[in-house]
Amino acid sequence: MQYTIKVLIEKPIEEVMKVYDSPEKKKHWVKGLLSTEHISGTPGSFGAKMKLNYDFGNYKTGIIEMITKHNLPNEFHANYTLKGLRIIQENHFISTEEGFTKWISNNELQPTNFKMNAMISLMPSTFKKETKINMENFKYYMEKGISVFKPKQSY
């Protein structure tokens, strides 16, 4: 399954890249992200791998990100691998005449097991919606400083 999501961020591309290219800030716009762990390669460059650790309440998972193109401020491409699914994502950033940033994210979902294939077939809008939410969270974080990060509380 392939789809494209677009978002206009009312900030200059230089400011957008400072946040987008920071693994430490990713938790402020990717809901459920607890931490990132460098696995291999030079961080932020072609071939680098990083583990993204998520907590969705009853469901905890790790997703492996491998950078396939790092040409910021214009492009950032990566493959994401998790149980049953591989996501190929190509992100393009364009500076508008108004000095804003247009973010275009092209996504291809490749199921690697029957269960995920069925989920994609039966609920394709779920995956598109999740991408759109993350992109809009980034927009709100950039424009208004609103973070989705909720630190775990100890009792």
Rank of each mutant, 00 (worst) to 15 (best):
V7P: 00
T126S: 13
I120H: 02
H38F: 09
L34V: 00
K83H: 09
F149Y: 15
T96N: 03
S125G: 01
P43N: 06
T42F: 04
H38R: 12
Q2T: 11
K150L: 03
W29E: 02
G84Q: 03
S95T: 13
N74E: 15
M17N: 02
L122I: 05
N137I: 01
L34A: 10
P12I: 05
N91F: 05
M123Y: 15
E136I: 07
S154C: 02
I133W: 08
Y155C: 03
K152E: 11
G62T: 14
N74A: 12
V7F: 05
P73N: 03
Y141G: 00
M142F: 06
T112S: 13
E65H: 15
L109Q: 01
T101A: 06
Q153Y: 05
S105G: 05
I5T: 11
H38T: 05
H70M: 08
V30Y: 09
Q110I: 14
K6N: 09
I67N: 12
L34F: 06
K27T: 01
F100V: 04
T61S: 12
G62F: 03
E130H: 09
A118R: 15
T96Q: 09
I64C: 10
G57K: 09
L8M: 12
K60F: 05
F149K: 05
P73K: 07
N71V: 01
S121I: 01
T81W: 01
T81Q: 15
L34S: 08
V19I: 15
K115D: 04
H77K: 05
L109N: 05
H70T: 07
E143P: 02
L122K: 13
K31A: 14
T61W: 10
E14D: 15
I94A: 08
N58G: 11
H28D: 14
N79P: 00
V7H: 07
K26T: 13
S105M: 13
M1N: 07
